[in-house]
């Protein structure tokens, strides 16, 4: 379910770097290979259930392979930015945070894929940190970036840029304060899904809780911003973003109830 987030980020980065996406074809092939590999790696969640050695090795190698297409995507995004002409509106900020933090989640994923080490990581907070890095600053930041990116097209109004940036920085700080310490308590040996824990884990847990509340309440800023943008705001142009390309930017803002009743011609 992270794939559409890859798609969103691949729309946003070229727009704000004012430069075409680097390696379009390899992006498509990388996405397809991730999809294919995801069918044959499922047992990486069960390295400790007592699989035969051969099965364990197979799933370890297959899981490690996923790092290659994922890496290709990250390299392509970075190359798209390289020698571009960048501006940093809120969707771009979320997309950049996605690239950095998702990559960190990818690194911990690579560490988890190494079966012998996974015996120490499995079912600890290290895993919790990993998949929250993939799902929150990964999938969720991708979605939020997409919402900011297309919001002017949907509502016909620009959102308040400073409020958007405030939302971004609060979320960014909150996410990292919440989930980064979980790597440490996981490695130090705290299992997941326990309601109470031994005393040596106390400090990092307290930090994570503070971060979680910051992150949680900063989403109320988002709610306020959404409602405000729907009700009014600076009128958006059809193009919305200077560097945006694609059919969705050829229709008026806000998008009329029916669009493309006559199919457009793509050259």
């Amino acid at each position: 379910m992270i794939l559409p987030a890859f798609g969103i980020v691949s729309q946003i980065i070229p727009t704000f770097a004012r430069k075409p996406l680097f390696g379009y074809a390899s992006m498509v092939y990388a996405t397809s290979s991730i999809a294919f590999l995801s069918f044959i790696v499922w047992a990486h969640h069960m390295f400790t259930v007592g699989l035969p050695l051969q099965a364990e090795l197979f799933f370890m190698y297959a899981t490690m392979l996923i790092a290659i297409p994922t890496g290709v995507k990250v390299f392509n995004w970075v190359s798209t930015m390289f020698r571009g002409s960048m501006t940093f509106e809120t969707p771009m900020l979320f997309a950049l945070a996605f690239v950095v933090l998702f990559t960190i989640g990818g690194f911990s994923g690579l560490m988890l894929s190494i079966a012998p080490a996974d015996f120490q990581y499995h079912d600890t907070y290290f895993v919790v940190a990993h998949f929250h890095y993939v799902l929150v600053p990964g999938a969720l930041f991708g979605i939020i970036a997409g919402v900011y990116y297309w919001l002017p097209k949907w509502t016909g109004h620009y959102y308040n840029e400073s409020l958007g940036k405030f939302h971004f920085w609060m979320s960014f700080i909150g996410v990292n304060v919440t989930f980064f310490p979980m790597h440490f308590i996981g490695l130090a040996g705290m299992p997941r899904r326990i309601p109470d824990y031994a005393l040596q884990f106390a400090d990092f847990n307290a930090i994570a809780t503070v971060g979680a509340f910051v992150f949680g309440f900063s989403q109320l800023i988002f709610l306020y911003l959404l409602i405000k943008t729907i009700r009014g705001g600076e009128k958006a142009t059809d193009q919305v973003w200077e560097g945006a390309e694609g059919l969705e930017w050829t229709i008026p803002s806000p998008a009329p109830y029916h669009t493309f009743a006559e199919p457009p011609h793509v050259k």
Binding site: K19, P20, F22, G23, Y24, A25, S26, T80, R83, G84
Partner: peptide, 8 residues
């Protein structure tokens, strides 16, 4: 900065 056009 002026964007260059390379893309692959």
């Amino acid at each position: 900065a002026v964007a260059s056009k390379f893309h692959e």
